[in-house]
Amino acid sequence: MLEIKNLHAHVGDDETEILRGVNLTVKPGEVHAIMGPNGSGKSTLSYILAGKDDYEVTEGDILFNGESMLEMEPDERAAAGLFLAFQYPIEIPGVATMTFLKTALNAQRKARGEGELSTPEFMKKVKEKAAELNITMDMLKRPLNVGFSGGEKKRSEILQMSLLEPKLCIMDETDSGLDIDALKIVADGVNRLRSPDRAMVVITHYQRLLDHIVPDVVHVLSRGRIVKTGGKELALELEKNGYADYVGQAA
């Protein structure tokens, strides 16, 4: 589904390479975890996958279902089925969360040549998914992410993900800022989305989330490279020993 080949990238005018040759293959149905110390390039990788301006790929390629995504606009990537749950979700004043969800869903459906959902159909769907994530109607009427607590923002990201039903879900530190109960709700939401034709990339610092969302593969990203790949036990090892063993290796 996703194939990252020797990806080199930098941000803006700063020539310093932040990704320095990342290789990663994710197949449908798989869940991959990417772990790594602060500043190792995890968020950068997620932004590059989603096509953020200013994030420049200097070498390598990203294939999504066999086709290069590098020339695609962010909205084209989204319509193709790529979803990024942001580490820091953005506030949009004045735009009700509900309005935003509907606009996004219909924009993607339109781009894929599907018809728009009618309002009752849409409402039914949102209500159902929101209930699962413990999100009230009241919250959906509020402007998107404005004044949401850290936990609310993360749950709202997962709500969007379950509504948009992407093929590839990238979650950037979706666990940060969540208490135990909220973590459970979010993890359950994510697990419900696991399916044989959907892949997930979970970016996190902590083993904690991986207790709930059990990965098939764990990667360690350090200084812009994947320095170690293993099974879920790798996460446990990292939890115990920290990143110290790996930090030096990428140099």
Binding site: A50, G51, K52, D53, E73, P74, D75, R77, A78, A79, F83, L84, F86, P89, I90, I92, P93, G94, V95, T99, F100, T103, A104, L105, A107, Q108, A111, P143, Q160, L164
Partner: peptide, 20 residues
């Protein structure tokens, strides 16, 4: 970027943000 990541085109994103 956030809006586009959710599938809105540039013009749709501008319209949405302006309406907000």
């Amino acid at each position: 970027f956030y809006c586009q990541q959710r599938g809105l085109s540039e013009e749709e994103a501008v319209a949405l943000i302006v309406n907000g």
